[in-house]
């Protein structure tokens, strides 16, 4: 199945990771945001065919959260960055 190229640990089987959901939209800043904004952030997701930015955590490795770009149609991974360094493109 998926091989995720962890920036710290190298290419690892996806079973070492946990999935963390959509990484495409920013979390409202702490203490800000209306109910509607939080509602959309928590409950409303796109389901794109193609590139999807998503969080994965290397729970059985370096414990780092990654932002991975995965093609939902082919499961091809085009990019994996540390979440704290992730740039939006």
């Amino acid at each position: 199945m998926l091989i995720i190229p962890c920036p710290h640990c190298g290419a690892r089987d996806y079973t070492e990771f946990r999935y963390g959901g959509d990484a495409s939209r920013p979390r409202p800043a702490h203490g800000t945001g209306t109910v509607n904004e939080w509602h959309d952030y928590v409950f409303v997701f796109d389901n794109p065919k193609g590139i999807h930015r998503e969080y994965w955590q290397h729970v059985q490795g370096c414990r780092q959260w990654l932002v991975v770009e995965r093609n939902t149609a082919t499961n091809e991974l085009s990019r994996a960055q540390l979440a704290r360094e992730a740039t939006r493109t």
């Binding site: 963390g20 979390r27 702490h30 955590q57 959260w65 540390l82 704290r84």
Partner: peptide, 13 residues
């Protein structure tokens, strides 16, 4: 544990 790491590594860097 994962939740705390998530917050510190994504939103609250």
């Amino acid at each position: 544990m994962s939740w705390l790491e998530f917050l510190l590594q994504t939103a609250w860097t």
